[in-house]
């Protein structure tokens, strides 16, 4: 009997300590039936990608509210590339100005979710992308 579950890693790279958004997303995705691995605050890009590989997640969700989303995301993308793991879906949430969304997508980010996004939108996006 097959019981596949979508596995998601929720991580906060960088130094900002605003954890509530990440937690809400983590709880929400759990309630949407996903297996969510929550690694918490102040994770280095190396830690995040290493955890994603060991946990064999389908998706990495980065929560960034520090303003450093471009450089932090870039580092995570680089880590994914050097580990030959670009097939893992990458999404970013947090405070991201409109003009940076395109840059993030250019790096390979599949979805960017800013303030006001409902958890169910995120869950639906992930389901569609992973099952595509």
């Amino acid at each position: 009997m097959n019981n596949k579950k979508i596995r998601v890693l929720i991580a906060k790279p960088g130094l900002d300590g605003h954890e509530r958004g990440a937690r809400i997303i983590a709880y929400g995705l759990r309630d949407a039936g996903f297996e969510v691995i929550y690694t918490g605050l102040r994770q280095s890009p190396e830690q995040i990608v290493s955890a994603a590989l060991q946990e064999d997640v389908d998706v990495i969700g980065l929560s960034i509210l520090s303003g450093a989303h471009l450089s932090l995301t870039k580092k995570v993308v680089d880590q994914l590339k050097s580990n030959d793991a670009e097939d893992i879906l990458l999404v970013v949430g947090g405070v991201v100005p409109e003009q940076d969304v395109a840059s993030l997508k250019e790096m390979g980010v599949a979805g960017v979710f800013t303030a006001g996004t409902s958890v169910s939108q995120v869950a639906q996006f992930i389901s569609e992308q992973v099952n595509a």
């Binding site: 709880y27 949407a32 039936g33 691995i37 929550y38």
Partner: peptide
């Protein structure tokens, strides 16, 4: 209920 899980031991 949802079949989902929050796996937080890595914290």
């Amino acid at each position: 209920f949802s079949g989902g899980a929050l796996l937080g031991d890595r914290l």
